[in-house]
Design a protein around this nucleic acid. Structure first.
Length: 594
RNA sequence: UGGGGAGUCGCCAAGUUGGUUAAGGCACUGGGUUUUGAUCCCAGCAUCCGAAGGUUCGAGUCCUUCCUCCUCAGCCA
């Protein structure tokens, strides 16, 4: 037998390699889980954790989720699913000034929409960092008691100056050597509201000369009188991310804490903190470990929270769920589908290399799943009349159109054929360009699912614009009859009976930005370019289209392929029963360059 | 300029302890099928792994030097 290499598992990446190794070595085998988050004592009373690994998706509820978050969601929830683990949804709500319930709600919605949940057996793994404030306070006191933290009286400005620079060491604060008793007293006073916002701050005591600036006594607790969406006015001191996040992970028995690259420099503090708290008996080994991956960069969109907020607040878009926005709420309204996100995240992989993904890669993923899932319908978006002059005036004839060419079991539906039809303006050319094989004078074309017709001419208005096209049909050539192949034509155009058509509003969306990297580069006079100048002025076109009658019954969020055009969805918000309006999700690929 | 990361086909990305022909996907290019110029099918697509040296029977994988890019100086996350 030859020694063949084991096949590389699909979707292999460096994080899976780490998990594989950890599992193989039993790194987390001794973990216990009491059913809820808690400290060492709490967990020690629990059972061996049935979850092989625990991951978490920890958004701050201060904005809407976007495509970049989808990458993280699929990574974390996907890992848990594939390794018999559990993934927690945790709101990292340690800064009350920016956070709100509105964001909490939209985030839970989006996670569910992508197909994930937090119910695992009998437990609900939906958590809030703010529910750990009591423990965090206790942990801070423990740090103080063990000489690992002190209360600083420097102003923010002084702290900044004394932190040093990238190349120069910082200077110790004058208050760095306060006694444990003094620190404890002051910290309690901070908690009890005896000090003004910004007047005192709790810092960890590590090394002001560290080459890693994040280790120069980072701030861990600040005084901030602000109403918290979850804890109300209970606290006037709040922990910093740096301090809070490792603790959240540890209390939840997270094994693999996965975040983006910009937190790499934070990892030494993450480990330092957890070790100190383990020494103090508050946490037990094995402790969670942090791993970092490259965040998503997508061409033709902006994903920074600041820019998204600006687009919404300055009303360049209609709201957080504008179909042109890369938010998950917007994507959903646009007609993008969860399964497409799954395909996309599988396809782009996970690594530590900074990369830019072409927006078309994302669109292709959506096309791919929509092609499989979406039923076909007929829509004329830019209508022009076609009259079949040799067809009886009051006749209505049934034609049969398959609902899905790849799924015959979905059956066919009837589309009525009459003498006067709507066809696509671009399907007729009086003077055809090279390679054009649709309707032209004297030319023949098939009316899809109907007859072959021969063009006999057209009418024009005073400006020379074509207003009506005339043709005659070949009675023996109806689709589905033996004679249908008697006349071979290359062109095949879609149509809708003018008498039966559903006249409907359709929004044709295009990219929000006309540049691959909005705002990148500099202006002629050397300033940074404003990303707003790259907004595509034609990112949406609202038209009145003529749709096949059955489309009247479409329900909000139903997706269809409008044949020869693309994928469209009945708008989630603006559709009314019996009167849906459609959004173009993405066009079909078009290999024919005019 | 200090610390921490990253550089494999146009875009992503495997490549675990060095082992002989550098996965796969997307894109692209040919050809076929097709009542969507869609889909689908078939074929092609890196003598080369940021660069230059070196170690070795053998290097994308080890060593040295260099280059480029990202990231850190919030009482944001």
């Amino acid at each position: 037998m030859s020694q063949e290499k084991a096949p590389i598992p699909l979707g292999s990446n460096f994080i899976r390699a780490i998990v594989d190794k950890d599992l193989e070595q039993g790194v987390y085998a001794s973990r216990k889980w009491a059913g809820t988050p808690g400290d060492a004592t709490h967990q020690a009373a629990g059972q061996p954790d049935p979850a092989k690994i625990r991951t978490r998706f920890p958004p701050e509820p201060n904005g809407y989720l976007h495509i970049g978050h989808a990458k993280s969601i699929f990574l974390n929830f996907g890992l848990a699913r594939d390794y018999n683990g559990v993934c927690h949804l945790r709101f990292d709500d340690t800064n009350p000034e920016k956070e709100s319930q509105e964001y909490v709600d939209s985030i839970t919605d989006s996670v569910k929409w992508l197909g994930f949940g937090w119910q695992n057996g009998g437990e609900s793994n939906l958590y809030f960092a703010s529910n750990y404030f009591d423990f965090m306070y206790r942990a801070a006191e423990a740090l103080i008691e063990n000489g690992h933290a002190y209360v600083d009286s420097q102003s923010a400005e002084e702290m900044r100056i004394n932190r040093g620079t990238l190349t120069e060491a910082g200077k110790n604060s004058l208050w760095r050597e306060r006694t444990v008793a003094e620190n404890l007293a002051l910290f309690r006073e901070m908690r009890d509201g005896k000090h003004a916002d910004g007047s005192l701050i709790l810092r960890s005591k590590i090394d002001m000369a560290s080459p890693n600036i994040n280790l120069r006594d980072p701030a861990i607790y600040r005084v901030r009188r602000a109403h918290h969406h979850n804890t109300g006015d209970k606290w006037c001191i709040y922990p910093m991310y740096t301090f809070a996040h490792p603790i959240e992970d540890a209390l939840e028995q997270i094994t693999h804490s996965i975040c983006t690259l910009e937190f790499e420099d934070q990892r030494p503090f993450y480990d330092w903190l957890l070790e100190r708290l383990a020494e103090a008996g508050l946490l037990a080994h094995p402790l969670p470990k942090q791993y970092e991956f490259a965040r998503l960069n997508l061409t033709y969109v902006v994903l920074s929270k600041r820019k998204l907020i600006q687009l919404v607040e300055e009303k360049h878009v209609s709201g957080w769920d504008d179909p042109r926005l890369p938010t998950l709420a917007g994507a959903r309204r646009r007609g993008y589908v969860a399964e497409g996100f799954k395909l996309f995240t599988d396809r782009i992989g996970v690594s530590k290399a900074d990369s830019w993904i072409d927006y078309s890669t994302f669109e292709d993923c959506m096309r791919e799943v929509l092609n499989i899932n979406a039923e076909r319908r007929i829509a004329v978006l830019d209508p022009i009349k076609l009259v079949i002059d040799n067809y009886p005036v009051n006749s209505v004839e049934d034609c049969f159109a398959p609902n899905h060419p790849l799924k015959p079991e979905l059956g066919k539906r009837i589309v009525p054929l009459t003498r006067e039809l709507w066809i696509e303006r671009e399907d007729f050319m009086e003077v055809p360009s090279k390679g054009y094989f649709r309707l032209t004078p004297e030319g023949m074309v098939r009316l899809r699912y109907g007859y072959v017709v021969k063009c006999t001419g057209c009418e024009k208005d005073a400006n020379g614009n074509v207003t009506v096209v005339h043709c005659e049909y070949l009675p023996d050539t109806k689709s589905g009859t033996p004679g249908s192949d008697s006349v071979k034509v290359k062109g095949n155009i879609h149509w809708v009976s003018a008498q039966h058509a559903y006249e409907c509003e359709v929004r044709l969306y295009d990219r929000l930005f006309k540049e691959a990297h909005p705002g990148q580069g500099q202006t002629e006079d050397g300033h940074d370019r404003d990303f707003l100048t790259d907004i595509n002025p034609n990112s949406v076109t609202v038209i009145t289209a003529q749709l096949e009658p059955s489309l009247k019954d479409a329900k909000a969020e139903d997706s269809f392929q409008f044949e020869r055009h693309g994928y469209f969805v009945a708008d989630k918000i603006d559709s009314v029963a019996g009167k849906p309006v459609f959004n173009r999700t993405v066009t079909l690929r078009d290999a024919w360059q005019k």
